[in-house]
Design a protein around this nucleic acid. Structure first.
Lengths: 200, 200
DNA sequence: TTTATCATCACCCTAAAGTGTGAAAAACCA
DNA sequence: TGGTTTTTCACACTTTAGGGTGATGATAAA
C-alpha cells in the first residue's frame, strides 16, 4: 500500500528535507504547501492519506485551523511537525485531534514513525460495518482482487465455505482457493482472525 | 484529570529521568517496572492510565510482548520509548497497536507529548469492544455462565480452541464443551456466526 | 504476441472445529 | 445437609477448515 502524504510547511528547506525522507522510504508525496491556501488547493486536487502539518505558517497559527479542518471536514489524519512544545500550544494542538506531534529538530526516522503510526491509528478508528474493498486494501501490502473481496464479504456475514460457494455460484474448492489467498495476504491462519481484524 | 503512568524501562537512570519529568508536569507515576514480570505485577495491583514502554528489557524484546498484552488483555494505551527505530523493529512494534513511539534520546517535552496525545487518542477510540456479559445475555434466553463468557471473550479475540485453552488454563475439551453450550444458547453452529453476531 | 494476473476447479492430505455422551469434582444455594 | 448448577475433562466420532500442488480458460497488460 502506497501512502500519499501532504507536507504543509512554510520553510522550503525543511519541507524539502521532509520530502526527501518520505521518498527515500517509498512514501509518495502528494505535494508541498507553503501556506494555508496552498494546502487547501492541494487537498482539493490531490489524493491525500496523511498530512504533516506545521503549526506556524508565516506569522500566524494557521496550522491549527487547518488541523481542525482536516479532522472535521476532510477526515484526513495528520501529525503536527513544529518547533513549539510549550503547554499552551500543545493544549491548542490537542484539541484539533492530531494523530502525532513531532517537535523540531527531528530525525529522519521520526518522520517515518509519524506517518506510519499516525496512519495505523486512523485505521483503527472506524469499524462496525463490512469494510469496503478500498478500506480492506489499506491494511495490506498486496491488495485483494474483486472476487477475493466477494468471498471476504460473505465470510463477514458468518457463512461457511459451502454457503459462500452457493451464494457466489462457484464450487467450494474455488472458495477455499480464494480464502487461501486472502489469509496469505493478511498473514493470518483462520477466518476467526479475519473477522476480528475486520469487525473487531 | 490526573493521569497515572506506568514506566517500563530497564535502565534505572532513564526510568528516573522519565519519572521526574512526569512529576514536574503533575502526572502521577503508578510505578517503575524494570522487567516484564515487574510490569505485570504493577498492572495487576495499580491503577494505570497509560504506559511508557521500553522495547528492550534486559536482553530480549519483552516490551513487544507486553505491548501486545496491554492492547489485547489490559486495554491500556501505551507509547514505546526506545533506542531502536530500524524498520524491522518498527514493523513489529506497529503490529502491537501503540499510540505513540518515541526514539531515545528524548527531550523533556517529548515525554509529556507522548502521554497526553497518546491518552487523547485512546479516548477517541470508542472502538467496537467485546460486549460485556450483561450485553451478551440480553441477546439470549438462557444466559451464559461466567466461564462461558470467558471463552466467548477469547473467541472474540480471534483465538483458536488450543489458544483459548492455554489462555484460560484448561484443557481443549473443556473449551469445546463451553463452546458447545454457547452455540446452543445462541442457536448457531460456528464461531464465525458468533463473531458476526457480536462484532458485526 | 507474449506475459501476467485472475478466476475457476480438482485432488489429496492434515489440522481444527464441532457433536454426542457421559461423568466427576467444585461451587452455589436453599 | 442435600440438591442444583457450574466447571472440568475424556473419548470417540463427523464435519469443516485450511494447506499444497497443479491445471485450465479468460482477461489484461506489455
Amino acid at each position: 500500500m502506497n501512502l500519499s502524504v501532504l507536507i504543509v510547511e512554510d520553510e522550503p528547506l525543511i519541507a524539502n528535507d521532509i520530502r526527501e525522507i518520505c521518498l527515500e522510504h517509498g512514501i509518495n508525496v502528494a505535494g508541498i504547501a507553503y501556506s494555508f491556501s496552498q494546502a487547501k488547493d492541494l487537498l482539493e486536487t490531490q489524493s491525500v492519506d496523511y498530512v504533516l502539518l506545521d503549526i506556524k505558517l508565516g506569522d500566524n497559527d494557521d496550522g491549527l485551523v487547518l488541523g481542525k479542518l482536516l479532522h472535521e471536514d476532510y477526515f484526513i489524519p495528520f501529525s503536527y511537525v513544529t518547533s513549539f512544545s510549550d503547554s499552551s500550544t500543545l493544549t491548542a494542538a490537542r484539541s484539533t485531534h492530531p494523530n502525532g506531534y513531532l517537535v523540531k529538530p527531528f530525525r529522519s526516522n521520526d518522520i517515518l514513525i509519524q506517518i506510519q503510526l499516525g496512519y495505523d491509528i486512523s485505521l483503527r478508528n472506524v469499524k462496525h460495518e463490512i469494510p469496503t474493498l478500498e478500506d480492506v486494501n489499506k491494511k495490506i501490502a498486496d491488495g485483494l482482487s474483486t472476487r477475493e473481496y466477494d468471498v471476504l464479504v460473505e465470510v463477514c456475514k458468518g457463512k461457511s465455505n459451502k454457503e459462500i460457494a452457493d451464494a457466489l455460484f462457484v464450487s467450494m474448492n474455488t472458495v477455499k482457493s480464494h480464502l487461501k489467498n486472502i489469509f496469505s495476504k493478511f498473514e493470518i491462519k483462520s477466518r476467526a482472525e479475519l473477522l476480528t481484524m475486520l469487525l473487531g
